[in-house]
């Protein structure tokens, strides 16, 4: 790593004052320290925001849940109230990294984490995302990359939390300069869809304060497939949230991760599902709508059938059915 300054903020105002254009915030450090050590990121200053007041709380509000930016992934995974109210959130948190990473990593950090593309993270490769001329993955080793992208970079969003929070229609509360505003989870990665240099829609020195989930309780599920059983990134992740009225689907939202620079949500699929009876055919058709425009590359075509399976399973899981164990 290159030398950098280190400062600790005790308020949001102070954090913004300390964080210049070439500086970065530091919370759990599980993402930024890796980048700094590999010379992928060379901040002038790291501003410690771990102690910002009010950012470490999980609160049930009148209308839903408020999760502070510095709540750790382990705290979410272990929260009994969340487990009962929003089980998919617990499932997504439990699948993040390793126990060490869950203990250190924060919710805001999980959402704002940078690309895990092995070219982007490589100290001896300068890829498009890192200011170079080409997306190496597009032409070469793209097994772990996107099957959708609106720009030449095919680095996918890999945040587990983003996928379930999108399905739950959560919003992120952000401080930018003197302004505080909310951004829908669905839009949180929008800029990365068309801008190869972006990891998400945040601007430099944007400070996440909290995440708000607009429901107190909802049937929801998070599934992922990885190569290993533990401590591995999702090849594809999928969340679904919604209600079941008898066997009819209501307000169902499906979201996928690791297949696009943004969380993959298709409104047509959600509206297709509205009011439908849950059966295999309906689930498969929803999957078709979501994956219709996929453009797999040489090594990531497997993500299409894998995503299709997860969408079907997630929908059935909302009804408490483990589809993969059913005999057809």
């Amino acid at each position: 790593m290159k030398p950098f300054q280190y400062a600790t903020a005790s308020s949001a105002d102070g954090a913004l004052e300390l964080c210049g254009k070439n500086d970065q915030f530091l919370a759990g450090g599980t993402d930024i320290l890796g980048e700094v050590k590999e010379f992928v990121s060379n901040p002038g200053r790291l501003v410690n925001i771990k102690n910002l007041p009010g950012t470490r709380e999980i609160v049930e509000t009148d209308t839903g849940w408020k999760l502070g930016a510095n709540v750790t992934i382990a705290e979410i995974a272990a929260h009994e109230g969340l487990r009962r109210a929003l089980p998919g959130l617990t499932q997504a948190a439990a699948k993040v990294g390793s126990p060490q990473i869950r203990n250190m990593g924060t919710l805001a950090g999980n959402l704002a984490q940078h690309s895990r593309c092995w070219y982007y993270r490589h100290r001896d490769v300068q890829c498009l995302k890192n200011g170079g001329a080409r997306c190496y993955a597009r032409e070469s080793e793209n097994k772990y990359h996107s099957i959708f992208s609106g720009n030449p970079c095919i680095s996918p969003v890999v945040s587990n939390m983003a996928v379930i929070l999108a399905a739950l229609e959560a919003s992120v509360n952000i401080r930018r300069g003197k302004q505080t505003f909310d951004i829908k989870m669905a839009e949180f990665y929008m800029v990365a869809w068309f801008n190869p240099y972006a990891h998400n829609s945040l601007k430099p020195a944007d400070l996440i304060l909290e995440v708000n989930i607009p429901v107190k309780t909802r049937s929801c599920v998070y599934l992922q497939v990885s190569e290993k059983s533990d401590f591995d990134w999702a090849l594809v992740s999928c969340a679904a949230a919604g209600d079941l009225d008898g066997n009819a689907l209501k307000n169902v939202r499906v979201a996928l991760g690791a297949i696009s620079p943004m969380v993959q949500e298709v409104e047509d699929a959600n509206s297709f599902l509205e009011g439908k009876e849950l059966d295999r055919r309906t689930a498969s058709m929803a999957a078709n709508i979501i994956l219709e425009e996929a453009e797999p590359l040489e090594h990531n075509g497997y993500k299409v059938p894998m995503a299709r399976a997860l969408i079907r399973r997630a929908l059935f899981k909302l009804a408490g059915i483990n589809l993969e164990r059913e005999t057809s």
């Binding site: 895990r116 092995w118 070219y119 490589h122 001896d124 490769v125 190496y136 032409e139 070469s140 080793e141 772990y144 190569e227 290993k228 059983s229 533990d230 401590f231 591995d232 990134w233």
Partner: peptide, 23 residues
């Protein structure tokens, strides 16, 4: 190995996958 750049793409335990206890 990356045929485009000639580097080892996974010189770490993130992408060089070793089995863990759960596996």
């Amino acid at each position: 190995m990356d045929s485009l750049s000639g580097v080892v793409l996974n010189p770490n335990f993130e992408n060089y996958k070793l089995p863990g206890a759960q596996d």
